[in-house]
Simulated assay, not measured.
Amino acid sequence: MTRRARPISSRLRTRALARGGVFSRRDAIDLGHHDMDLHLWVRTGQVLQATRGGYYLTPNDGVGWSDLTSPQQQLEHERRRALAVLHVVPECFAASHDTALRLHGLPTVSTPTACADVHLMATAATPTRPRRPGVKTHRMPAGTRTVLRPARAVSVADAIAQAGCQGGLIGALIPADAAVARGDLERAELDEAIARAAGLPGSTGLAEVVGLVDGRSESAGSTFWSTVRGQCWSSMVSTSIAVQRSCIGRRSASSDCTGPGT
């Protein structure tokens, strides 16, 4: 007898929504569904497969979805994809780097994309790492703090430091400003997290972030441009001083030092 695919049951939908819109193949099987159902849901766009055995309900039909910008919509897809991955990997793994930042609701230097990697760190010694397309696992530095809400992830401070290893100074500064403005981060916490990340690739020079953090920045864009302007000003002043010193040696220059806008 040929089985016919069935629509998503209310029980499975309720269970998924209680977890942020995600469920596993095991959840579906336990509630009486089968693989043919999953294939139909994915094919018709009702469900998206985040990883092997991990799925999430499409948020496209939600209230207010059409009012979101394209980046905001993609961010929600990426958030659900990360939650679906966390749902099917061992509990000793937590979201890290920019994946953790998005789960914490903080801006990142990179634009969310459908193919962005989900970054994980093991919170305990484990003999194996999950080998899944689109999932990257990292060594967790000693002392890294983890939280269970809003999802299983490294702390805000640790996520910012790790994102800085990925995206450089701006990669850490953008979410750090937002976290300070929101009251979720103290400079001392960030200083400690950067020290913990010292052995990670890309951590060189990251300590400079602590002195640049400004919770008054209104957006990720303002953080970026204020930093760029500051770096440009510093570079132009240094160049001006160097040129004047060279000219003075030849006795042919004014003695004042000027920068842009003066």
Rank of each mutant, 00 (worst) to 15 (best):
C247P: 00
G249P: 00
G202N: 01
L148T: 10
L83G: 06
G53T: 05
S235R: 15
P59F: 14
R6F: 03
Q49I: 04
P141N: 05
L169M: 12
A28P: 04
Q73L: 03
H34Q: 13
V22W: 12
G134E: 09
I194F: 05
R19G: 13
A188K: 15
S222R: 15
T126E: 02
H119R: 14
A153S: 14
H119L: 09
D67I: 02
L106G: 11
A153T: 04
H138F: 08
I241N: 01
S24L: 08
R19I: 01
A18E: 14
G32M: 04
H97Q: 12
V135A: 03
V85P: 07
A16T: 08
Q244Y: 08
A253W: 09
V154I: 15
L57F: 08
H119D: 12
I248G: 11
A188T: 14
L200V: 09
G215M: 08
N60R: 15
L120P: 12
L17W: 10
V237S: 00
A172K: 10
F23A: 05
R131F: 00
A178M: 02
V22I: 12
A220M: 04
R25G: 09
V109K: 11
A220N: 08
R19W: 09
A125L: 06
G21H: 12
W41Q: 07
Q244A: 13
G259F: 14
V147Q: 09
H77K: 01
G32R: 02
L200A: 04
T204Y: 14
E76L: 15
G168H: 04
R3C: 07
E186A: 14
T146D: 10
V22G: 12
H104F: 11
L120Y: 06
E76H: 11
A100L: 07
L12Q: 08
Q49P: 00
L206T: 02
T128C: 05
A188F: 02
A179C: 09
D37Y: 02
R102Q: 13
M236V: 14
R145Q: 14
R3W: 07
R52C: 01
A151D: 03
P107S: 01
W41A: 10
T14R: 11
L106D: 06
P133W: 08
D35P: 09
M36F: 05
P127F: 02
R102D: 05
V156Q: 05
W225G: 06
L48E: 12
Q73P: 07
D184H: 14
Y55A: 01
E208N: 08
D184P: 06
A207N: 11
A195R: 11
I194Y: 02
L40Q: 11
